[in-house]
Write a protein that binds this DNA or RNA. Structure first.
Lengths: 216, 216
DNA sequence: ACCTGAACACCGTTCAAGT
DNA sequence: ACCTGAACACCGTTCAAGT
């Protein structure tokens, strides 16, 4: 006796590049990028590692896909707003998206960002700046500043410069250097917990008003 | 017949943590961090990989040592200068040092910076800002901005946002998206080669004058 | 066309054994 | 005290073989 059911609907959905990237991204969200391996990713998808190579060039290709997956989740800035407002909105949106997937900064530093969603986002930003009257050089320059600021803060927010006082190694060097680092020691309680969102926003305003001055 | 020579001077110098870190750093300079492995590093030192563990906790410990090795090469800012000048000098010195060893940015993003040289540098910077009259919060904030800016530009200078037009993959997505990315296409010749040093310096001025405004 | 098992050339790290 | 060989549990990737 045979059953008239489509096996593909009862078993997992078919393997596609998109499904691989999606799964890789959420794996990185829960276990960290450094734990991601082809074998584990295959297991997550109910498949052997080698099957992935039918839909993806190699692991770097997956990394590139993950980066673009993050950019695809950032709403494109509205070019009809005043340029200051567009930049502000895009910056905050990017920080928000990056903060949910902080591994993107590590990948960005290793691989750059040249997928379709990244290029589209970059193009909108450059367009806003050029329409505002910036030269190509200054537009590129502004994009650079905003990108650096956003990547830097994402990293810091995801436990970067924040001193982890439970880390005995840091504590050891800090007590060794204690008297040579009076300011770090004095600011230690503050460094341990601070409002990164507010800090990012203020830095953003500094950049925007600096660009405003440049435009004159 | 025996010779009265010190074997340690004729053969390689004895293995130490310092020598391991030095060798790891220059290996990363010439072959890239991603190529660094315990086995290759051992070979470079004329020793088996396992010997390294007598002087170093593990590979992460080596990474931490390499980060601090980079910071140790940045001259500390002069606290007697006006604070604007101190920040400018420290920023340019840090960019210069980072640019010679761009792998430090990748490591920094993965590991943070809490070695003695890093903490010392950070302490001087925070001291300059606090002495200038900034609150602890603003001092931390300014440090953050400067660090993000410097790491971001180092990365970009070491082939980041610079579009490599020999990369066929990028070219393919660019021709696919061509009409949707008019600004990227229009700026392409400029994006391929630009003066990162000058761009960094101008961004630094924007940050410094933004901080000046904040101080009032 | 897509999936797989076995294999290759690597990893970081542990540990008992050498000197 | 320091170095080593063998081993363990992993990697990414290739390739011939299956369906």
């Amino acid at each position: 006796m045979t059953y008239d059911v489509d096996v593909t609907t009862t078993s997992r959905a078919p393997l596609t590049r998109e499904r691989i990237i999606d799964t890789a991204a959420s794996f990185a969200d829960t276990h960290g990028v450094e734990a991601l391996s082809m074998r584990k990713l295959g297991a997550e998808l109910g498949v052997e590692a080698m099957s992935l190579y039918n839909h993806v060039d190699n692991k770097d290709d997956i990394y590139d896909g993950m980066i673009d997956w993050v950019f695809a989740g950032i709403p494109l800035p509205d070019p009809d707003d005043p340029w200051q407002e567009s930049l502000r909105g895009a910056g905050l949106a990017a920080l928000d998206r990056f903060s949910s997937h902080p591994w993107v900064v590590t990948l960005l530093m290793q691989r750059g960002n040249f997928g379709p969603a990244s290029l589209l986002f970059m193009d909108r930003m450059l367009g806003i700046l050029r329409d505002a009257g910036f030269s190509d050089e200054d537009a590129h320059h502004a994009w650079q500043m905003l990108a650096s600021h956003t990547m830097g803060y994402t990293f810091q927010a995801a436990s970067g410069t924040t001193i982890e006082f439970d880390d005995e190694k840091i504590l050891a060097t800090l007590t060794d250097l204690g008297d040579q680092c009076p300011h770090v020691v004095a600011m230690a309680p503050f460094l341990a917990h601070c409002e990164f969102g507010a800090e990012y926003a203020f830095g953003l305003e500094i950049i925007i008003s600096g660009l405003e001055a440049r435009l004159d």
